[in-house]
Design a protein around this nucleic acid. Structure first.
Lengths: 135, 135
DNA sequence: CCCACACATGCGAATAATTCTAATTTGCTT
DNA sequence: AAGCAAATTAGAATTATTCGCATGTGTGGG
């Protein structure tokens, strides 16, 4: 009964090889913000025989369970990362593709205020800054 | 020599029927935030014989020329709108799908500051608030 | 500890959005 | 009006993701 097994049980998902392996890959953090394809390749490199459809299905379930977050940067494929409970937004370098995480309480507060001012309740947001190195 | 003709000339694009029609549809503003498919249908409804590939190509050129903006809400298809020079962000109602535009100078300023603090220059951003009606 | 059965998986086909190809047509310069 | 580069077309190709279905497998109840 590993830690991954427990995490899966906790959210009501059966403990299966694909789920354990995918969770391990995401936790190993080699590369935060992996695409479904990245994960599929990592599985194949590790000698696991998992179909790409299963990768997508499992990622969707993990997201629904709150274990991971899915992000869509620009128009590329979706990327996934472990949800450590610390909310943050992203900055993407247009030259190197590097992704930097940041959090700004002020911006969060302003978003709430804007929603309220318009008669709505904020349920989520998506903020990505596109940047390039200075000079 | 219509207004659309002049706009196209100004950005260095040949004046062709598809380009004029697409620009007119976007300007007519029936529905801001149209998808490529919406525009394609509007053209067909108007009896114009324009291919979907041309719609995509023209939209890409218009975006490069700064005539329009492209946005990606969540994981749906891209939407396009005329760029009237007034920058704004979007709020999408998760229940009705309604899109509300807003602008907040404070948030814009904070974004610049965050990029700078990390050694980058802000070149663009994508901010979408997902909201639902208050109770 | 075993069994049934609901749930998972893998494969390949299907879909959706978008881009490419290659042959034809069209706008603009002279 | 003629010529050439640029634009258009339909359809094929790509990319990202989901679906259908036959087969395989964890897990709770006995």
């Amino acid at each position: 009964m590993t830690l991954e097994d427990q995490e899966l049980k906790k959210v009501g998902l059966k403990v299966t090889v694909p789920r354990i392996k995918i969770l391990q890959i995401l936790e190993s953090c080699l590369n935060r913000h992996m695409t479904a394809e990245d994960i599929y390749q990592a599985l194949r490199d590790a000698g696991e025989d998992v179909g790409i459809a299963t990768v997508y299905r499992v990622l969707t379930q993990f997201e629904a369970a709150g274990l991971i977050e899915r992000h869509n940067f620009d128009n590329g494929p979706a990327v996934y990362e472990i949800d450590r409970g610390e909310h943050h937004d992203h900055m993407v370098c247009t030259e190197t593709g590097k992704v930097i995480e940041f959090h700004d309480a002020e911006i969060e507060k302003l978003q709430e205020r804007i929603a309220t001012k318009n008669g709505y309740q904020l349920v989520g947001h998506n903020l990505v800054l596109y940047v390039k190195p200075l000079a």
